[in-house]
Amino acid sequence: MEKKYCTAIVLAAGQGRRMGTEVHKQYLLLGGRPVLYYSLHTFEASPLIDEIILVTGEGEEQYCKEEIVEKYGISKVKAILAGGAERYHSVWNGLCRMQKDGYVFVHDGARPFVDKDMIARAYEAVCAGKACVVGMPVKDTIKIADENGFVKETPKREELWMVQTPQVFDSELLRGAYAMLMRQAHIEVTDDAMVVEQMLNHPIQFVYGSYENIKITTPEDLEVAEVFAQKYFS
Rank of each mutant, 00 (worst) to 15 (best):
T141K: 13
E44V: 05
I80W: 08
P219N: 04
T42D: 07
D221M: 08
Q15L: 14
L174Y: 10
M194Y: 04
R121D: 09
V151N: 13
Q198C: 07
Q62T: 14
I216H: 02
L173E: 00
A225R: 00
G16Y: 11
V77F: 06
A131M: 07
W92S: 01
I187M: 04
V23I: 14
F105C: 03
H89D: 10
A13Y: 03
G73P: 08
G84W: 02
R33Q: 06
E158I: 00
F228A: 05
I9P: 04
G109T: 08
V207M: 10
K78S: 15
E44R: 04
S234N: 12
M136V: 15
L30V: 03
M194L: 07
A125K: 03
V106A: 04
E212C: 03
V168Y: 01
A45E: 14
V106K: 00
E58L: 13
E44G: 08
D117E: 15
L160R: 03
C6F: 01
D108S: 10
E66V: 13
Y103N: 09
S46T: 06
V23T: 13
A12I: 04
K4M: 11
D50P: 03
F105W: 05
K139V: 02
E70S: 14
V106Q: 06
K156L: 01
A8W: 05
V163F: 08
E226V: 01
V106W: 03
E70D: 15
W161T: 04
R17S: 14
I68C: 09
Y27F: 15
I9R: 00
L95M: 10
A185C: 10
K116G: 02
E67L: 03
T217P: 01
D192R: 06
E159R: 14
V106L: 13
E44S: 03
P34K: 08
Q99G: 14
A145N: 12
V227K: 15
R111L: 09
T21G: 01
M182D: 09
A82F: 01
L29I: 04
M199I: 02
K116A: 12
I119V: 11
G31Y: 11
R175H: 12
K4F: 00
G109F: 01
I9G: 05
M180T: 06
Q167I: 10
D192H: 02
E158P: 04
Y5I: 07
C64K: 02
R87D: 00
W161N: 06
C127L: 15
E61N: 09
M118E: 12
G14F: 04
A229I: 01
E124A: 15
V168N: 04
E66D: 15
T218M: 05
R175T: 11
P112H: 09
Q205G: 07
V126A: 11
V35G: 04
V77N: 04
I142V: 15
V69Y: 08
T190W: 13
F43L: 01
L81Q: 08
G209P: 05
G59K: 01
D101N: 12
Y38G: 03
A229R: 07
K65A: 09
Q205K: 14
H107A: 08
G129L: 05
I216K: 06
M199N: 01
S75L: 09
V227S: 13
L54A: 07
D140G: 10
E147A: 13
L40T: 03
